[in-house]
């Protein structure tokens, strides 16, 4: 019978148990796939920057296109002031993209399908952006909760809504990515299970669904990495150019 579709998300320890002051920091399959992503990214960029050709080779072109893509995304959403944060956005996008894409391989593990991973990113971005906003604008940064051009009567309600929406940023950011990845992979697994259980006759329908879903999931993997990066850019823009 079909295996548990949630089994693919299970984290288990690889190698020895590492405990530091009572906290389990063991190397897991999640850590392994993070490392694989990191190694692949390094390999891609290493080969992409090894030669300095005037007419780029395919892999060099790939790294340059990635660079231009993210540079354009940042300058479009956060302006010129966001230039110092370009390496962070670049790393963020490429790391999430690689984790998502590697997760599409059968028998692999999707790092980003875990709420703790996306939440770590989201909380880091949230805290970083908030600190940045206060450092740049001082207490004027609180203006972000008070939009201009709103009638006085509505102002208290709007301000409360703004504060709630600001505070829910890390949750929405992390849950969006995590839920998309988890739901997609669960669905793939469920349909995969149907293929086996319905056999040679009835299995074709779920199989075709699986094929279509795989295509869709690859799109989602790219799209969610892009959305995560662009939302980070938008939050950064709020902190850098306060024009609420």
């Amino acid at each position: 019978m079909a295996a548990n579709p949630m089994q693919q998300f299970e984290v288990h320890r690889i190698g020895p148990e590492i405990k530091i002051s009572g906290i389990d920091l063991s190397f897991t399959n999640s850590s392994l796939f993070m490392t694989i992503s990191a190694v692949l990214i390094t390999a891609l960029l290493l080969f992409g920057t090894r030669e300095k050709k005037l007419v780029p080779s395919k892999i060099q072109l790939m790294s340059e296109m990635l660079y231009n893509f993210i540079a354009k995304m940042i300058s479009d959403t956060a302006g010129k002031k966001a230039k110092p944060y370009f390496p962070f956005i670049f790393s963020l996008f490429i790391f999430i993209l690689f984790c998502n894409m590697i997760g599409m391989l059968p028998y692999s593990f999707t790092v980003t399908s875990h709420i703790i991973v996306t939440l770590t990113f989201a909380i880091f971005i949230f805290i970083g952006v908030t600190i940045l906003g206060f450092v740049i604008h001082g207490f004027k940064y609180l203006k972000i909760f008070v939009p201009s051009g709103v009638p006085i009567v509505l102002l208290p309600i709007i301000t409360i809504i703004e504060i709630i929406s600001y505070l829910s940023r890390p949750v929405s950011l992390s849950v969006r990515l995590f839920a998309n990845m988890m739901a997609g992979h669960t669905m793939l697994k469920v349909f995969g299970g149907f293929v086996i259980s319905l056999g040679l006759i009835g299995g074709w329908l779920p199989l075709s669904f699986s094929v279509a879903l795989t295509g869709l999931e690859i799109l989602v993997a790219f799209l969610q990495a892009y959305v995560f990066a662009i939302l980070t850019c938008i939050y950064l823009n709020d902190a850098l150019n306060l024009h609420h």
């Binding site: 949630m6 089994q7 998300f9 299970e10 984290v11 320890r13 590492i18 906290i23 389990d24 920091l25 063991s26 190397f27 897991t28 999640s30 850590s31 993070m34 490392t35 992503s37 990191a38 790393s91 790391f95 790092v111 399908s113 875990h114 709420i115 703790i116 991973v117 770590t120 990113f121 995590f178 988890m182």
Partner: peptide, 20 residues
């Protein structure tokens, strides 16, 4: 959901920070 099992949360966050 294995995601909600906090057993390896610290490990995942730790390795994520180091690798990232």
């Amino acid at each position: 959901m294995p995601q909600l099992n906090p057993k390896y949360w610290a490990s995942q966050a730790f390795w994520l920070i180091i690798i990232f």
